[in-house]
Design a protein around this nucleic acid. Structure first.
Lengths: 240, 240
DNA sequence: CGAGCGGTATGACGGGCGTCATACCGACGA
DNA sequence: TCGTCGGTATGACGCCCGTCATACCGCTCG
């Protein structure tokens, strides 16, 4: 449990209900049902870089992100990592493993200070029995993830690194970008290594491209994110 | 409807029930419910190379493969194709699109003579209402596909082409391989282009590697599949 | 039978990018 | 204050593999 701190549920009981309301899975529950979930839920906090679970771990809990961001990744045969997705507040974590009672098929690491809500598998299953709406909600989430993943698969395979990187930042911009007078700000701090893991290349290459783009005033790395300065230039690179 | 032939449901009504029993989704239905599905189902046949649906098409039917094999693929920004999965008898096709009432996120083409069972979306939805077990079955299928896709994502990103190709055939061997005195036979006819689309490379490279491996007696291309002659050599290549 | 076509095969060439090596810089702790 | 460490930066080298071009082979059709 390195980097994790378990908080007594009683202390936070006031907030638990509020937390549950913000999750995509449990938000539609009636008040009393949410209360029942709250009674068996645990809150856990992770500092940046802390491992939430590792690939192959037995899955006994369903995680839900309350705040922070988490990268879900798989380690390839060669030892390099590939980031499958980056999850944020409200997103479930490990739903696939818990539902199928199998080991986690990928690892999860906090890339920001993160707090999660943990529901034991047994409690989760009895919820599924009682509330078909939760099953529906799960289905919706999974289908969206499937579509996302297929897009990433098409994206990763082949093509020049520069184009992939440009498309990656353009997608981030439309997803979580904030308009500013100087450009579009992406409030997501990723290391060069994590950028490389997202687009399937090495850290040196990602550093090289980011460094050049910084000098060419296309995109700048800031303390807590990235600032897109020249969106049209990136779009041109993405097309090529 | 090029390459498709619609058969009168009445003629095949005897077989329809048998077909439904073989699907992963509808097999658990009670007899009378299966009969209700059979009443609204259609059978359609596709010859090799025929398009079942294209990426972006509106989804009005749920397909289920009765016999044959289908490749599901996405076209990248650069115009190259990436094969996401190859489905066989019993597998559902387009479940994600139908459930979410969205356009198909990928295209589907028959790589063998194939016959499918078509269920209209409306009928599918009323089935979902009546039978929670179908929803469960859908969920299971989706989670398996998710795990598969994440593995393929990790597989595709980076690494030498030879290693990826070796791993690809080794996986096929363990999935659908048949032991023979001369080696392991993989009963799946893929063109060099389709091999390239599976592992994310070009047709020339896949031809080169396959050609060399043929000469080195590692794997031979036959009329209706591939014959793995030297499994340990492939495993060595996959490791490197 | 010759033309056309789709799939396979093979060579030549060059650039993108992975690999190795070194250096710089800020943060942190002894 | 200095040493260490993690992250970033940059150069040199080489080779895998994508691109272009040509050839071969079996099949179908006029």
């Amino acid at each position: 449990m390195l980097g994790a701190r378990v908080l007594g549920a009683r202390v936070l009981n006031v907030n638990l209900d509020e937390m549950l309301r913000r999750t995509t899975i449990f938000r539609r529950l009636a008040g009393e049902d949410r209360q029942r979930v709250a009674n068996v839920a645990t809150v856990r906090e992770y500092e940046k870089g802390a491992t939430i679970f590792s690939e192959g771990d037995a899955s006994d809990q369903l995680y839900t992100i309350v705040s922070g961001r988490v990268k879900v990744f798989k380690t390839t045969a060669r030892g390099t990592d590939v980031i499958l997705e980056i999850f944020g507040p409200g997103d479930p974590l490990g739903a696939v493993a818990v539902y199928e009672s199998r080991a986690y098929p990928a690892g999860a690491i906090a890339i920001e200070p993160t707090t999660c809500l943990l529901i034991p598998r047994t409690a989760f299953f009895s919820l599924l029995e009682l509330h078909p709406t939760i099953v529906r909600s799960l289905l919706s989430g999974l289908t969206h993830r499937l579509v996302e993943l297929t897009s990433r698969l098409a994206e990763l395979s082949g093509g020049r690194v520069e184009a992939r990187l440009a498309r990656f930042f353009l997608k981030l911009a439309t997803d979580i970008g904030q308009r500013r007078p100087e450009g579009t700000f992406i409030p997501l701090a990723l290391s060069r290594q994590e950028i490389a893991d997202m687009i399937g290349t090495t850290i040196e290459t990602s550093i090289r491209v980011m460094s050049r783009w910084g000098k060419e005033d296309l995109i700048h790395t800031e303390k807590d994110g990235f600032l897109l300065r020249d969106r049209t230039a990136l779009e041109a690179i993405a097309m090529s």
